[in-house]
Design a binder for these strands. Structure first.
Length: 442
DNA sequence: TCTGGGGTCCTAGGACCC
DNA sequence: TCTGGGGTCCTAGGACCC
């Protein structure tokens, strides 16, 4: 165990804690159902690869991202469950709540992790920062039945180094004067914010560890690296430049829906239907947050992982899927290549604003706009009551439920560009209001 | 890491203006 | 029509995170 600072009073210009749930999704499953304890448990059943694995599973070589078919080969007794995001969100909220008992300055960084600012709280709790951090860790374990790895230091990046330093159930305090030992033991690519690209660049300049990086001087850093990386360099040197984002996040700059399908498809009708489903999902999310988009982008991802897509500006703000789809049609025909197999599609709504703020221009018929809004209010209510896909656009049909089978079974076959074009002629009727919905309620 | 889904931020470069 | 210099705004795309 790393006992640096236990019971002592090291100097922290700021005292920031980072807590990180160990194998969080899998740990939540075990916490809810204690009969799973001690067993190899894996989440991700709904998508065919491992999202999270308990340490019992990891000990067998079952790690994130591997196929569930391989999991069964490695360990037939492994317990595979579908991800339950509502459960994980509940545990997440409880984690934040525990942290907030100690400090109001909490950053909800991810579903399984958060930062807290403990600066100035020694007097309040009559404890050293290390002891406060240990107490938080103990509370989390006692109340959630999940272990957390905890880092304490004077910057966010160093606190992250700490929480990663020992897993699972680790506690690592990195006081300013002792930090070099920890940085020497941390590969540069493991630092938060240093991805594969920057790692390769730094390694080419002889930098292997985080300590090597901190030993570079400021001029060199400013000359070769961009602002985010320069900030990481400062934080690794003990200068706190990243603030905690403590406001609860409730607005989005963009909303994205993507989906991979298997097997890959080259059918225009099927692909368009996937995009239609993406659009509906993104619009539904925008509506639940009271947001409306001024533009959007979409892509098709080929079997070879190449992206082709387009950015589209809307003539007016919208969160109604049929309007987005209408704008997408001509671009789809340019993006889609006959004969290419695609494995995924995606849609991103951009230029998001609060729906109330939106000004109607002179040419928008307010009656019609209000009518559309009412239709989708109804859609949202039905979805709330009967679940996702209870009601959807006709254009999404082939992407939903048994649609995949129907689409291939019908033998549309290789759709040429002209035939793909013909596909949309019949959609003229969709412009007629009210919209043709296909319901599968109940 | 042979690759799922959902995000954010930064930067270079072009368009446009004075 | 060419030549400077400088500012702002927007967009595309890269890089990274969980």
């Amino acid at each position: 165990m790393n006992e640096v600072g236990w019971g002592r009073h090291y100097y922290y210009p700021r005292a920031l804690i980072h807590v990180d749930g160990d194998s969080f999704f899998a740990a939540c499953e075990v916490a809810r159902n204690p009969s799973l304890r001690g067993k190899p448990v894996v989440t991700g059943a709904e998508r065919g690869i491992v999202s999270a694995a308990t340490y019992e599973a990891k000990a067998l070589g079952i790690n994130r991202g591997i196929r569930l078919a391989d999991v069964k080969k490695i360990c037939p007794e492994a317990i595979i469950v579908a991800s339950d995001y509502e459960l994980y969100t509940l545990y997440s909220l409880r984690m934040y709540e525990i942290m907030r008992r100690y400090t109001p300055a909490v950053e909800e960084y991810g579903i399984d992790e958060c930062f807290g600012d403990l600066t100035g709280l020694r007097r309040t709790f009559h404890m050293s920062y290390e002891d406060i951090a240990r107490k938080i860790k103990a509370d989390l374990y006692r109340e959630l039945d999940i272990t957390f790895s905890v880092g304490l230091s004077c910057t966010k990046v160093l606190a992250k180094v700490g929480s990663k330093y020992q897993k699972p159930d680790g506690f690592t305090a990195i006081p300013l004067i002792g930090k070099d030992t920890f940085l020497a033991n941390t590969e540069i690519g493991k630092i938060w914010g240093i991805g594969p690209n920057t790692t390769a660049f730094l390694q080419n300049h002889g930098i292997r560890t985080a300590l090597d990086f901190t030993n570079k001087n400021e001029d060199w850093v400013k000359k070769y690296l961009n602002k985010p990386i320069e900030e990481i360099w400062r934080e690794l040197n003990g200068e706190s430049v990243m603030d905690l984002v403590t406001e609860a996040k409730h607005t989005y700059y963009s909303i994205q829906k993507t989906r991979t399908f298997s097997p890959p498809s080259k059918e225009a009708g099927f692909l368009y239907s996937q995009l239609s489903k993406n659009v509906e999902g993104a619009c539904a999310k925008a509506r639940t947050h009271g947001l409306t988009a001024t533009g959007f982008s979409f892509f098709l991802k080929s079997q070879e992982f190449r992206y082709r897509g387009a950015d589209v500006k809307l003539s007016g703000p919208s969160n109604a899927p049929h309007e987005i789809l209408h704008a997408m049609e001509p671009h789809f025909l340019k993006v889609f290549r006959a004969g290419t197999f695609y494995r995924a599609s995606g849609v991103t709504l951009t230029g998001l604003h609060e729906a109330k703020e939106v000004q109607l221009d002179l040419f928008t018929d307010p009656e019609k706009t209000a009518g559309i809004a009412r239709v989708f209010e109804r859609v949202d209510v039905l979805t709330e009551r009967f679940g996702r896909h209870a009601i959807y656009l006709a254009s999404s049909m082939k992407a939903i439920g048994a649609g995949r089978v129907a689409a291939s079974g019908r033998g549309i076959g290789s759709v040429s560009r002209t035939r793909a074009g013909a596909l949309f002629k019949g959609r003229e009727r969709q412009k007629i209001f009210p919209l043709p919905f296909l319901g599968e309620v109940g």
